[in-house]
């Protein structure tokens, strides 16, 4: 039964391919005829028009046939074109296809992209129309307009991410930053901060997409030694710090100056080297709910307990 259905499916597909080829052939004929010109005696325009009409009717017929057949062929994937490279291929796996996760993933991806794009435009417009009483004059305006277009996740040509990372690595002796590209294009920063913590930052272009922080004694490997950046830390304190640092990435996000945003984030992260040794700047104590001051103020870099932040 299932075989039968599959056979008819395949038959229909082959038929559709044949019809498409036929349609392509007829369309090509029309265009070649039009571009090369018709071989006909002069003054016999009617014959020419007839010929053209004939080939156009053929195109129309072929298209009609194909359209008639089209509703009978079910798509193997309900994702529009394979925009997501290898992610798009997920949809071809019948097991995951049933759960609909690929479609959701695809929608989410598109949605976040859209949000970033709109955010970038908003920032641009708000940047040019600052609510200031004094007019900055055309000079300032022109300068601002010369800023690059919103990059979202494209690295501008004038920024070398390797140099950027190396400069941060050099500037702070107790912070080692290394850059790895595990799948070619994507960028992962591996950071070891003094003997306090280890961090992994996943970048898309220069946009920080994911941060994970673990203890100095932990590593980003599974039990059988494969890299694993998604698992959580064993310790409460580092899970909390991961949450807060992820919130910090949003604070430091700047669409127009992606390099400055990444750099200032890394400089801010450097404050966490005193995670265990610094008392809270507000209550002066070390422990609150068995956790050290896990927040570093984004302006003053002062250590604060999660409960002392307000």
């Amino acid at each position: 039964m299932a075989d039968n259905r599959l056979d008819t499916q395949i038959e229909k597909l082959t038929q559709a391919i044949k019809l498409t080829q036929k349609l392509r052939a007829s369309v090509t004929k029309v265009f070649t005829d039009l571009s090369d010109g018709f071989q006909a005696p002069k003054g016999d325009e009617k014959a020419l028009l007839n010929k053209l009409q004939k080939s156009l009717t053929a195109v129309n017929d072929n298209l009609g046939d194909l359209e008639k057949l089209a509703p009978n062929i079910h798509s193997t994937t309900n994702i529009p074109p394979l925009l997501l490279n290898s992610v798009g291929l997920l949809g071809l796996d019948p097991a995951t296809d049933k759960s609909g996760i690929t479609t959701q993933l695809h929608h989410t991806h598109k949605w976040t992209n859209k949000v970033h794009k709109l955010g970038d435009y908003t920032a641009q417009f708000l940047g040019t129309n600052q609510l200031k009483r004094t007019n900055q004059g055309p000079a300032g305006q022109a300068k601002r307009l010369r800023r690059p277009e919103p990059t979202i996740h494209r690295i501008p040509e004038n920024i070398n991410i390797q140099q950027l990372v190396a400069s941060v690595d050099r500037a702070y002796a107790d912070m080692s930053v290394s850059l790895i590209r595990p799948m070619g294009n994507s960028t992962v920063l591996q950071i070891t901060l003094a003997k306090t913590l280890k961090a992994v930052i996943v970048l898309r272009g220069l946009l920080i997409e994911y941060v994970s922080i673990k203890a100095y004694s932990e590593d980003f490997l599974t039990d059988d030694g494969r890299p694993d950046i998604w698992s959580k830390s064993k310790y409460q304190v580092f899970n909390k710090v991961t949450d807060l640092v992820t919130a910090g990435t949003i604070h430091f996000y700047h669409p127009q100056l992606p390099d400055a945003s990444l750099k200032s984030f890394l400089i801010w992260l450097n404050n966490y080297k005193t995670l265990f040794s610094a008392p809270c700047s507000k209550c002066g104590k070390y422990l609150q709910g068995f956790l050290p001051p896990i927040w570093r103020d984004t302006r003053s870099s002062q250590p604060l307990h999660d409960g002392c932040r307000q």
């Binding site: 003997k195 100095y216 304190v237």
Partner: peptide, 18 residues
């Protein structure tokens, strides 16, 4: 025992409080 830290001097003040 304070598990996340590996340096005594860094977490001593916290441990002292407890």
């Amino acid at each position: 025992e304070y598990c996340p830290c590996v340096i005594l001097n860094e977490c001593w003040n916290m441990m002292k409080e407890l």
